[in-house]
């Protein structure tokens, strides 16, 4: 998704760090090998970045300036939930929803470009107060959930599957709004379950809530 922008900008003072929220490097490997990014593509088997930045889904992104300061905290990286309008009869998404998704992604990419080129002058670069205002603080339950997730992943790597899965289930119970935790746990049970009927049931249970919360960004489609 980001290689085109990275190639276009060719800015020695701009780097993309892609982080795969994948407990198994082999699951991420074919995607990375196909994309062949020239920027670092890292594997986060324990979802440490999600824990540190309080992330709940993919794709999410954080903008960090040259001094290591957060310019835009963790947010939906321009994804639009067009998939929720999937027609199961025809297995297609309506064209207007597809167009909105394309526009949302293009808007986000253009904003990153603008920030890389103009820095803090960019209208998309938050000031400190604005960045703090957009920062979601984790709850005690979320912090506890990440402990269970990390322990669960370790147990799974040790081959202690039953106990490992119990820990992941507890993590998801404590942090039910984390799609990262739920889908990763679903993935290890049964390949494909992360996008199967249980996934759709969870998505439908959102009702008017968002799977990809709208990004607070000028020009972003509703």
């Amino acid at each position: 998704m980001w290689q085109k922008l990275y190639d276009e900008l060719q800015d020695p003072n701009f780097i993309i760090i892609a982080v795969a929220m994948d407990s198994r490097a082999d699951a991420a490997r074919p995607w990375i090998e196909q994309a062949a990014p020239t920027y670092p593509a890292l594997i986060d088997r324990d979802h440490r970045v999600a824990e540190l930045y309080n992330m709940v889904n993919v794709p999410q992104a954080v903008w960090i300036d040259e001094d290591g300061r957060i310019v835009r905290p963790a947010e939906n990286a321009g994804a639009f939930e067009a998939f929720r309008s999937l027609d199961f009869e025809t297995m297609t998404v309506p064209e207007d929803k597809q167009a909105t998704a394309a526009a949302a992604k293009a808007t986000y990419v253009a904003a990153v470009r603008d920030w890389v080129l103009t820095g803090s002058d960019s209208v998309h670069a938050f000031g400190a107060d604005q960045a703090r205002g957009h920062t979601a603080a984790p709850s005690a339950e979320i912090a506890q959930a990440h402990c269970h997730f990390r322990l669960g992943q370790y147990l799974l790597r040790q081959g202690r599957e039953g106990e490992g899965v119990e820990q992941l289930v507890e993590a998801s119970r404590l942090h039910p709004t984390s799609w990262n935790i739920w889908r990763q746990a679903a993935e290890i049970n049964d390949m494909g379950l992360a996008a199967g009927p249980e996934f759709w049931a969870r998505v439908n249970a959102l009702g008017d809530d968002h799977y990809y919360p709208p990004v607070d960004m000028a020009g972003m489609p509703e």
């Binding site: 760090i17 795969a20 991420a28 890292l42 594997i43 993919v58 794709p59 960090i64 040259e66 290591g68």
Partner: peptide, 30 residues
Amino acid sequence: DFTLPDLDGTNHSLSDYRGSKVLLATWASW
């Protein structure tokens, strides 16, 4: 800050890139 490996097992830290703007972007295979 965090340190994570790439596919080859080489570790990268966010702090290695101090002095550059960083787009930290997550994704997943699932």
